[in-house]
Simulated scan of single mutants.
Amino acid sequence: MPVSPTDPVSPIDPDSTTGPDSTIGTAAAIAAATIAAAAAADDSTGTDALPYAGGNPYADYRHGEFAFTALTDLADRRLGGAVLAANDELFAERENLLLPEPAEFRPHTFGNKGQIMDGWETRRRRGAGTARPHPTAEDHDWALIRLGVPGIVHGVVVDTAHFRGNYPRQIAVEATELPGTPGPEELLAADWEPLVPRSPVRGHAANGFAVASRRRVTHLRLSQYPDGGIARLRVHGEARPDPAWLAALGTFDLAALEYGGAVEDASDRFFSPPANMIMPGRSRSMGDGWENRRRRDEGHDWVRLRLAGRGVVRAVEIDTGYYVGNAAGWAALYGRDEHGAPDDWFELVPRTRLQPDAVHRLLLPGARPVTHVRLDVFPDGGIARLRLHGSLLDD
């Protein structure tokens, strides 16, 4: 299956020595491993994809293992990402680029313009005339993307799933930072910084690119040379929302992805990733939360989160929506302040009985600063959403 934010990353062995205080999954560790993982991605199959021969359309899909995919997809449509404009989308609409689901392929589904593809696909480029029928080396198509949440990009995945003979030869990604909500005209006139230089891509494959720049960005420009189709674009990194906006909000969900919260580690990601818990809105199905496998020991599952900043949590929501026969039985919440005693966890919510398919609202006494929280579930089971309502401290 293709790399996407809805796919689980490598599950953690519940019998290993990894614990809730480990540093596995932190942004620093992910950044350090990114370049090595990208370099180790299998490229033995070359750039050409075989024609579709029937059967499972993903059977020969080439997927890479990229450490940065554990970070938030800053362009996720569910966070507000959008494709604002493209110079061409004759065969397939630009909006498909940011759909959270893996790209699908339904053979022999033809519309008036050809095979219906789940991605962004442009027409075939041509040269200037009879004497020069081929496009030049600089001819390309482009799309402008607004990130759902501004941030620092650690890596990009350009997924050409199901584009076998019609994928681009090369791609490039540029970035800029603009305030407010600029339109295509302002973006086309902006100053752009390269994130991914012009690079070759493979067909029917997840093409991953580590990013060295640590500049905060708000928009991207994706270019493909000279033309072709791209199924999905994933932009993994660390959220950096506008601090003035957060200050104006006052009280907000300190764990939310859209405000800079992030999952650092978890005991298990077997059925669905824990980052689903801090997505915007209510869960839409059982697969839209965090669900671990059934435990057959005396342990329990947990997830550790980094909050948007150092703050005070005043109210907690634990939502088990859509988990009817597989909700967590009990939950407890702990906090940690890395600016105080970074190794000391203290209780925020004692072990509390949970009901299936229900929202549990809990008020917290006191006002102790936290930078991280750990949610423990007993013995296992699903959590749809976790909300930690509070405010940031001045520091």
Rank of each mutant, 00 (worst) to 15 (best):
S4V: 14
D7C: 10
D7I: 09
V9W: 09
S10P: 10
D15Q: 12
T17A: 14
G19M: 03
G25M: 02
T26W: 13
T26C: 12
A28E: 14
A31Y: 03
A31D: 13
G46L: 02
P51M: 11
Y52D: 09
G55K: 00
G55A: 03
P57K: 08
P57H: 08
Y58G: 13
A59Q: 15
D60T: 13
E65G: 14
F66D: 11
F66L: 06
T72N: 08
D73F: 04
L74A: 01
D76S: 05
L79D: 04
V83E: 11
L90F: 15
A92I: 08
L99M: 14
P102F: 01
P107W: 10
T122Q: 06
T122I: 11
R123E: 15
G127Q: 04
A128R: 12
G129I: 10
P135H: 02
P135E: 03
A137G: 09
E138R: 04
D139P: 01
D139K: 01
H140F: 03
W142Y: 13
L144P: 00
I145K: 01
L147C: 01
G148Q: 00
V149Y: 06
G151C: 05
G151D: 03
G151A: 10
I152L: 09
G165V: 05
N166Y: 00
V173N: 00
T176E: 08
P179H: 09
G180S: 05
E185C: 06
E185V: 12
W192D: 10
P194G: 13
V201G: 00
R202W: 07
H204N: 06
F209E: 00
A210N: 05
R214T: 15
V217E: 07
Q224P: 02
I230V: 15
I230L: 14
R232T: 05
L233M: 00
L233H: 00
A239V: 01
P243N: 02
A244S: 09
A247R: 10
A248N: 04
L249K: 14
D253P: 04
A255S: 14
S267W: 06
R269T: 15
F271W: 11
P273Q: 05
P273D: 04
P274M: 13
N276I: 02
G281M: 10
G281C: 07
R282N: 14
M286H: 08
G289I: 01
E291Q: 12
R293M: 07
R295K: 14
R295N: 06
E298G: 14
W302K: 11
L305P: 06
A308E: 09
R310I: 05
G311R: 03
Y323H: 10
G329M: 08
W330D: 15
R336F: 07
H339Q: 15
P342M: 03
D343R: 12
F346N: 04
F346K: 05
L348M: 13
P350K: 07
R351E: 14
R353P: 04
L364A: 06
V370I: 12
F378E: 11
G381T: 10
R385T: 01
